[in-house]
Amino acid sequence: MSATRVFFNVAEVAYLAAVLVFAVYYASHKKGFRAVAISFLIAGGLSQAFFVGWRWVEGERPPFANSFETLVFFSLAIAVTCIIVELLYSPKAVGAGASLLALLAMAYANLFDWAIDPLMPALQNSLWLTLHVVFCFVSYAAFAVSYVVASVFLLKQKGVLRKVSAFLTSLSILGLVGGLVYGLGRKHGIIPKVGGRTTIWLIAAGFVVAGLLSAALVAVLNARGVRSEGKRSVLSILVSKTIAFGFPFLTIGIITGSVWANVAWGRYWGWDPKETWSLITWVVYAFFLHVRFSGGWLGVKAKSLPTFRALLSMIGFLFVLFTYFGVNYLLSGLHAYGD
């Protein structure tokens, strides 16, 4: 096993440990476990940073040029954001979710080819490649953490909101884990290729299982007497703060991409599907930031604004995921070389 792989694996194990120890902390309420979990996250992040740095030196180019490399950086950015959020705000139940996302991003990275491929001519611009990818993925990580905070916030609400949130959370975990299992199975030739009607049946089954899981989750939350800490709770503020942190990064990420496109192709905007979807995502978060000025006109009263924002944050992250993955597989365009 090469030295770089050791760093990668150490990070994976550390994130898994962080998820488990955070879970133990939530169950036991003993603060020592939280410190241990954060230490695992820090250790994982350091190991992963070594991995990224090593790859940079070995490949003699910034390691941000394909799906494998961006997923690894995405995971690192999520871990760092999660550590900062934990240390500054210590919100309940966010650490486990965010660590799980960091772990899943690493696991997904495993599906792709590890080889340090030489770059095609358009990508050979270290300055713009680094700026563009780093800015975009730091923003994606902030939005990912906001998504986790929003789902925890909504799970703590009463009635329909709790049920809807439980269903969305179950569905996204099932989708992410299911996709990973399928990807790994396909990679090792264990699972046959699924298509046509089977896909529809699988999706339908996914919805049913998510429904059952969410019912169980709601039952557990009800039984444990989990309650909202009020609309002005840490969670409610964090949903907005993480987005406010990520938004400038996304803005500058799109701008650096645009300047780079002008340097390489002589056009700063070409309505390429990836470009357009990054703009759509930007518009969604711009909408999020302007909602408070709507003055109740959207039918959202001041007191339900936090819930509305949490829902918007969850929807916003789906747009991020589509811009990142969906566009590559479902729409064609210039960024197809990212695979």
Binding site: T276, W277, L279, I280, V283, H290, L331
Partner: peptide
């Protein structure tokens, strides 16, 4: 307008 533009752009990329 932001909402309308977003919807139009989604349709355009499809």
């Amino acid at each position: 307008l932001l909402a309308v533009i977003a919807v139009v752009l989604i349709v355009a990329t499809v």
